[in-house]
Amino acid sequence: MQKTTLISIILLVLFCSCKQQNQEIMEPKKTIVRKHPKSISFHFEKSKEWLAKNIDSTQIRIALAVNRTDKTNIPKMDSIIVPKDLTGDIEFYLSFPLEVPYLKDINKIIFFSYPTQTFAAYENGDLIYTGPTNMGRKKDPTPTGLFFTNWKAEKTTSTFNDEWDLRWNFNIANKLGVGWHQYELPGYPASHSCLRLQEKDAKYLYTWADQWILKDDENILVKGTPVIVFGKYDFDAPKPWLQLVQNPKALNISADEIAKTTKPHLNSILAEQKKREKQPIKG
């Protein structure tokens, strides 16, 4: 009788375990609802004239992103590039692909593209957030390669000028003092090697990305969210996004390019991710 009961318990445990595994396997992937524009094409407009007749905040946000600028600097531009159809979500007018299957095992990762001056955040291969950036100027280029988010602060003071307030600052290279933060976007690489963002974008990434976990004052226990900065910017050529008027796909970054950029760093990224997953959840 005891032997029969023991066998029954083992079979029940195995059944429940298999059922749970099957449920996990069968759990559908979360669907991201996106608003597609009817078409994607770009043309030039006089900046002040266009702003005077467009007050829709969503459309203005798209125009700012396309011109890699902000509300303060766009009126200073003589002409700007504007999509003909502004009814879609912002990701359809920028450079990064909506999905990258190669990233499916990476919980969180951020990319900054130097040549397109755009950034993108992915969760398991799905694009969840994107926007414009102004990276390091020719004299002070932003370093490229793999980084991890370190410490963050809602407000810090620039080491270059103590009159510059940097909001939503998230460091990615502690010894170099490089990170992303909110600061003016004149519409071209102008920073002292940091990654300038609009305030809304800087705040989003500030909240979304993970900080490092320190073992003590000198040692890192777990690194933060992986950040890959890639590509080169031609400082002697016209702004790359001007090409969009002739070819709306001129700056498109393919999923294969992201995979190729990520591949040399994949093992390091997954190793750090595994370390984080092993950390106890703080209540």
Rank of each mutant, 00 (worst) to 15 (best):
A65P: 07
V82E: 12
P189Y: 15
T130M: 05
I62W: 00
I9P: 12
V178A: 02
A52W: 09
G125Y: 03
L11R: 04
E45V: 05
V13D: 07
S39D: 13
L11H: 07
I32W: 03
G136D: 08
T156L: 13
I10E: 09
N171D: 10
L251R: 02
H181V: 01
D210P: 00
Q117A: 03
W151M: 12
K239D: 14
D234S: 05
D165V: 03
I106V: 15
W241N: 12
Q273I: 11
F230S: 02
L127G: 12
L195K: 09
Q246V: 01
N22Y: 14
F147V: 09
D85F: 15
P189D: 08
K108T: 14
N252R: 04
S47C: 06
H181S: 00
D105A: 13
Q23F: 15
M26S: 09
I281E: 06
Q198K: 04
N54G: 00
I213V: 13
T261Y: 14
P186V: 06
L242T: 09
Q23I: 15
Y233C: 03
P37Y: 13
A153D: 15
T157H: 06
I32V: 13
P143A: 07
P83Q: 03
R167Y: 12
F112P: 01
A121N: 04
Y114R: 14
F96G: 08
S41R: 04
T262A: 10
S41G: 10
V33F: 07
N67A: 14
E163W: 10
V229Q: 03
S158V: 04
H181Q: 00
L197D: 07
Y188I: 02
V13R: 04
H181R: 01
I25P: 01
S39G: 14
Q273K: 04
I55T: 10
L197H: 05
Q2H: 01
A65M: 06
K263Y: 06
N174T: 09
A173P: 07
K104A: 14
V100K: 01
E218C: 04
V33M: 10
P186R: 05
I228E: 08
P75M: 11
L64G: 01
I81Y: 09
D234F: 08
L146T: 02
G125Q: 01
K139F: 08
V66L: 03
G125M: 01
C16I: 13
E91C: 11
I281G: 02
T118V: 11
E91F: 13
L197R: 02
R68S: 03
I213C: 04
D201K: 02
T87C: 11
T225W: 03
S191P: 07
I32G: 02
I55Q: 12
Y93F: 13
L185M: 08
K263V: 02
Y188D: 00
E218L: 13
L197N: 04
N124M: 13
K239L: 15
P115R: 07
E199P: 05
R196E: 06
W164Q: 11
K249I: 03
K48Y: 12
R276I: 13
P37I: 14
L94E: 07
K152P: 05
K203N: 11
K76P: 09
Y102F: 15
Y122M: 05
Y122H: 07
D216C: 06
D105L: 15
I81K: 02
L6E: 14
Q246R: 00
A271Y: 12
K108N: 12
W50L: 11
R34G: 00
K263C: 01
L12N: 00
D201N: 07
F160I: 11
T130N: 02
A173W: 10
I80T: 06
F96L: 05
A259K: 06
